[in-house]
Design a protein around this nucleic acid. Structure first.
Length: 774
DNA sequence: CTCTGAAGGTAA
DNA sequence: TACCTTCAGAGT
C-alpha cells in the first residue's frame, strides 16, 4: 500500500503529491487525513496523507512515523479544502495550515553540536551552551551558511548539525500524589499534616501540597520513602473570563417565540435563516433557546462571532446555561487552543464558540451553525488563503444537511437580497422586550461649528451632552474610527509630508517613540522637526489619532474619567475584558474607542453615544464603505439607552450622505438606496467581483504586463476593468496595478490557469476573490 | 524550502 | 589545482 502525501512546505516547487510506501506496521492503521513524518530529500518533513492507494510507480521511500490516532483532516474538512481550492489559487500546504490549528504543525529546530571546539571560530563560541550545543533561533539563521561550511570542511568534522522535529501542540501534565497506606517510614510523625490531608481527599497536586506548607524537599523525601506515590496526570487548560454574566432564563416575547418555533421546525433540513432584529431586541435569547433544542437532539452547535472581544460575553451566557462549551479563537494561548481543539475533536463539546477560524473545527454531529453579526467584515479572511467564514459555514450546512442561522441588526446588502429573493428565510424581531424607545439621533454639522469659531474636535452640543451625563452619573460612549486615517506630520512652511522611500504612502507618526514609520515595509526613521525639503523647523504632527482625541477630551473635561479602547490598549491578552469590566462597574464616565466598542456588552448606564468625524468612514475607498459606515453607526448608536432612554450625537463635516442620514430612519430606507447603487454599478449582489493585483519593479513593464493580461482575460465571459493603479501605487519598491472582474459565473480554474501563464520572473500576479482587499 | 552538483570564476 | 560563488533542478 502507498500513501499520497502533501509536504508541509509552502512553495510552488513542491506543491504536488508525493507517494510513499506504507510500512507493514501501519498498513491497517494509516488513514487519509493523518499527519506523517517522511524522508524528503535529505530532510525529514511532516506531511499530510491525502489518499491511500494500492499502486504507485514513484514511491521509493517509507513513511517514518504517523503522528495521529484520529485523522487531523476528516472527510468534511477535505471537502471544505476542495471548496477553497476551487475559489482561490493557493498552495496545498497553505490550505492545510489554514484549516487546521497551528498546534498540529511541527517545529523544525536546527541544533548545532561542537565536535572539535578548538576549531570553532571564536566569534561563534558564545552562542554555544556549556554542553557545546546551540539551538538555532530565527535570528541565528544568518550564521547558517557559515555553520554549513564548518560542517563540510574536509577531512575533519568540526560541528554536527541536526534538525529536531517537535510537535507544537503539547499536553500539559501535572504531578499528583496519593498516599500509601502501607509505608514503613518511621519519621512520619514529622508530617502529621500529610495524614490529615489524605484523610480528606485521596489525591493532591504538587501545588495544593505546597500551598498547605509542605516544601518541595518535604515532598521529595516522602516520595523517596514511598509514603506518597507520584504520578503524571494530564491537566485541561480551562479558559477564564474576567466578568461575571449569568443567563437569567427570560420568558421569550411572542415575537421571539415565533422565530424560535420557525427555526426549530426546520432543524432537520438545510435552510438558511436571516434573523434581522433591531439592537436590543434579544437575538441572543433566541440563539440560546434554539441551541437548547438542538442539544436535546444530541447534536452539536457551532456559534461564530466576528471579534475576539465578543467571545467572552457570549461564552459566559452559554456556559451559564449549557455544559460542554468549547472556545476557540486566535487570542487563546497555544496550550489552551490545543486543549480546546482536542476536546472538540473527541466530540466532548456540544457547543463550540469562536471567531472566523473556528468555522473549520471538526464536529461530527453538527446540528446548527449560528453566525452572529453576519454582516461583519471580519468573517472574511484577507490574508494568505482568503475565505469567507459565512460561505464556509453554508458549505458545512450543505454537508450536514442542517440549518444556518445568520443574525444581525443590519444584515449585509447581499444577505438581505438573498432573503428578498427567498433563498434565505427572513425572520424579524422588531420590538425591544423592555419596550424602550430607540435612541434619538441628532446630527451636528462641524462646518457650522467652524463658522462659530469652534475649532475643537468636539461640538458644543456634544460637550454639553457629555457634561450633563457626568452630572447625572450616567455614561457616554465615544466612537472615533481611525480606519483609513493615521496620524502623519507636515511641514507648515512648504507643505511637505514625509513619505516612505520604498512605498507610496506617508509615514505614520508615533508620538511615544518620536519616530516616523511605514505601515507597509516597516521602514522607520526618527522624527525631526526640520523639514528635509525646505530646511525650516516647522514640521508638526497633523491630526487626530485617537490618543490625540483623548488628550483634548481630558483638557476640555478635566473631571471626566476616560477609558480608551483601541488596538493599542488591548494588545495584552484579556485587557479588553478588563476595560469593559471597569466601564461596566462605572469606574469611568466615558469610553472612547475605535470600532471595537461598537459591539459587545450592554452597559445599562450608557445614555449617550457620540460619533466623531462620522464622514471619515465614507472615505475608505471601497464599494462597501457606505454599507460598513451605516452598519457601524447603526450599531454604535444602538448602544445608547439599553435600559434608560438614550440619545446619540453624530458629528461630521459631510453628514448629508445617505449612509449617515439613514441611521435616523429604518434599515429598509438604507437597503433600498444602497441596493439601487449596487445595481447601477454592477456590484454584488448583482454581479460577482474579484480583483487581480499585478506588481513589479519596473513601472512600465508592470503596466504592459497588466495590459496584456487584460487582453487575455477578455476571452472569458466577464467584464474586465482596468488596469488601473492600485490604491497604494508602490509597496516595497514594487509598483502595483489592479484589474477588476465583474461576472455572473466564471470558470475559475480556467482563470487561474490564465493568471499563472502570465506570471513572469519580474512580474507577480495575485488573485483576490473579494473586492477591496488590495 | 533545503540541498546538491555543475558551471564559471579567482587566486596561487 | 584548489577553492569560491551562483544558479538551476530535484525532492516520492
Amino acid at each position: 500500500m502507498y500513501a499520497k502525501v502533501i509536504i508541509d512546505i509552502k512553495h510552488e516547487d513542491v506543491n504536488r503529491f508525493f507517494d510513499y510506501i506504507i510500512p507493514q506496521k501501519y498498513e491497517d492503521f494509516l488513514e487519509r487525513g493523518m499527519r506523517v513524518l517522511v524522508p524528503f530529500g535529505k530532510q525529514t518533513r511532516m506531511g499530510y496523507v491525502t489518499e491511500i492507494i494500492t499502486e504507485s510507480l514513484d514511491a521509493t521511500k517509507e513513511i517514518l512515523e504517523v503522528l495521529d490516532v484520529i485523522p487531523s483532516i476528516n472527510e468534511e474538512l477535505f471537502s471544505l479544502m476542495n471548496y477553497i481550492k476551487n475559489h482561490v489559487p493557493a498552495l496545498y500546504s497553505s490550505i492545510f495550515s489554514t484549516v487546521i490549528p497551528s498546534e498540529l504543525a511541527v517545529n523544525y529546530t536546527k541544533v548545532v553540536e561542537m565536535v572539535k571546539p578548538e576549531l570553532v571560530p571564536d566569534d561563534l563560541k558564545p552562542y554555544f551552551n556549556k554542553k557545546g550545543i546551540w539551538r538555532l533561533k530565527r535570528k541565528d539563521q544568518v550564521y547558517y551558511p557559515r555553520l554549513k561550511k564548518l560542517r563540510d570542511s574536509k577531512d575533519q568534522e568540526i560541528i554536527k548539525i541536526k534538525t529536531v522535529i517537535k510537535e507544537k501542540g503539547t499536553t500539559k501534565t501535572d504531578k499528583t500524589y496519593t498516599y500509601n497506606q502501607n509505608h514503613h517510614y518511621k519519621r512520619i510523625y514529622h508530617y502529621e499534616i500529610v495524614i490529615d490531608l489524605f484523610n480528606m481527599k485521596k489525591e493532591y497536586t504538587r501545588k495544593e501540597l505546597t500551598d498547605q506548607g509542605l516544601t518541595a524537599s518535604n515532598i521529595n523525601t516522602l516520595v523517596k520513602n514511598q509514603v506518597l506515590f507520584e504520578q503524571e496526570k494530564d491537566v485541561f487548560r480551562e479558559i477564564e473570563h474576567q466578568f461575571d454574566l449569568s443567563d437569567k432564563k427570560v420568558v421569550l416575547t411572542d415575537e421571539q417565540q415565533n422565530v424560535v418555533n420557525q427555526i426549530v421546525n426546520s432543524l432537520d433540513k438545510q435552510e438558511t435563516f436571516l434573523l434581522k432584529g433591531i439592537t436590543g431586541s434579544g437575538k441572543t435569547e433566541v440563539y440560546l433557546e434554539v441551541i437548547s433544542k438542538v442539544i436535546e437532539q444530541n447534536k452539536q452547535v457551532l456559534v461564530l462571532v466576528p471579534e475576539i472581544t465578543l467571545v467572552a460575553q457570549m461564552a459566559k451566557r452559554l456556559k451559564s446555561r449549557f455544559d460542554d462549551v468549547a472556545i476557540y479563537h486566535s487570542a487563546l494561548s497555544s496550550g489552551e487552543r490545543f486543549d480546546q481543539y482536542k476536546k472538540i475533536q473527541s466530540g466532548k463539546a456540544s457547543i463550540v464558540l469562536g471567531t472566523r477560524s473556528a468555522v473549520f473545527l471538526p464536529m461530527e454531529d453538527l446540528g446548527l451553525v449560528i453566525i452572529d453579526e453576519e454582516h461583519d467584515d471580519s468573517y472574511i479572511q484577507k490574508e494568505q488563503v482568503i475565505y469567507d467564514a459565512v460561505e464556509i459555514a453554508l458549505e458545512r450546512a450543505k454537508h450536514h444537511q442542517i440549518p444556518v442561522l445568520l443574525g444581525s441588526a443590519t444584515p449585509s446588502i447581499t444577505s438581505m437580497y438573498e432573503a428578498m429573493n427567498n433563498r434565505f428565510t427572513l425572520l424579524e424581531l422588531t420590538k425591544r422586550p423592555l419596550n424602550l424607545e430607540i435612541p434619538t439621533i441628532q446630527y451636528v454639522d462641524m462646518r457650522l461649528e467652524l463658522e462659530k469659531n469652534n475649532t475643537s474636535i468636539f461640538s458644543k452640543t456634544l460637550l454639553d451632552a457629555m457634561k450633563k451625563r457626568i452630572e447625572m452619573k450616567e455614561q457616554t460612549i465615544l466612537l472615533f474610527n481611525r480606519k483609513g486615517y493615521a496620524p502623519f506630520v507636515l511641514c507648515r512652511a512648504c507643505g511637505d509630508v514625509p513619505q516612505c522611500p520604498h512605498c507610496d504612502i506617508s509615514l505614520t507618526y508615533y508620538k511615544e517613540k518620536k519616530s516616523l514609520k511605514c505601515h507597509y515595509c516597516g521602514y522607520e526613521k526618527p522624527f525631526d522637526n526640520t523639514c528635509s525639503v525646505c530646511n525650516a523647523s516647522k514640521v508638526k504632527e497633523v491630526g487626530t489619532g485617537i490618543e490625540y482625541v483623548e488628550q483634548v477630551l481630558k483638557k476640555q473635561m478635566p473631571k471626566a474619567r476616560v477609558l480608551r479602547m483601541d488596538k493599542n490598549a488591548t494588545r495584552i491578552k484579556g485587557s479588553h475584558e478588563i476595560i469593559w469590566n471597569n466601564f461596566l462597574n462605572e469606574e469611568a464616565d466615558i469610553l472612547l474607542g475605535t470600532q471595537m466598542i461598537a459591539k459587545g456588552l450592554d452597559f445599562p448606564k450608557v445614555t449617550l453615544v457620540g460619533v466623531l468625524m462620522a464622514d471619515l468612514l465614507l472615505k475608505v475607498p471601497s464599494y462597501k464603505s457606505t454599507e460598513n459606515a451605516y452598519m457601524l453607526l447603526a450599531q454604535v448608536t444602538g448602544r445608547s439607552g439599553r435600559f434608560y432612554p438614550g440619545e446619540a450625537i453624530i458629528q461630521g463635516y459631510d453628514i448629508g450622505h445617505f449612509a449617515i442620514k439613514s441611521v435616523n430612519q429604518t434599515y429598509e430606507t438604507f437597503y433600498q438606496e444602497a441596493l439601487y447603487n449596487r445595481k447601477l454599478m454592477n456590484y454584488p449582489p448583482f454581479k460577482n467581483t474579484s480583483q487581480i493585483l499585478i506588481s513589479g519593479e519596473s513601472y512600465l513593464k508592470t503596466y504592459q504586463r497588466a495590459f496584456m493580461l487584460k487582453k487575455a482575460l477578455s476571452s472569458l465571459s466577464c467584464d474586465v476593468l482596468g488596469p488601473s493603479q492600485a490604491l497604494i501605487t508602490k509597496i516595497k519598491d514594487y509598483y502595483r496595478f489592479t484589474i477588476t472582474l465583474k461576472y455572473e459565473t466564471i470558470e475559475k480554474q480556467e482563470l487561474f490557469d490564465l493568471l499563472e501563464a502570465h506570471e513572469f520572473d519580474d512580474i507577480k500576479i495575485r488573485y483576490f476573490p473579494y473586492l477591496d482587499i488590495v
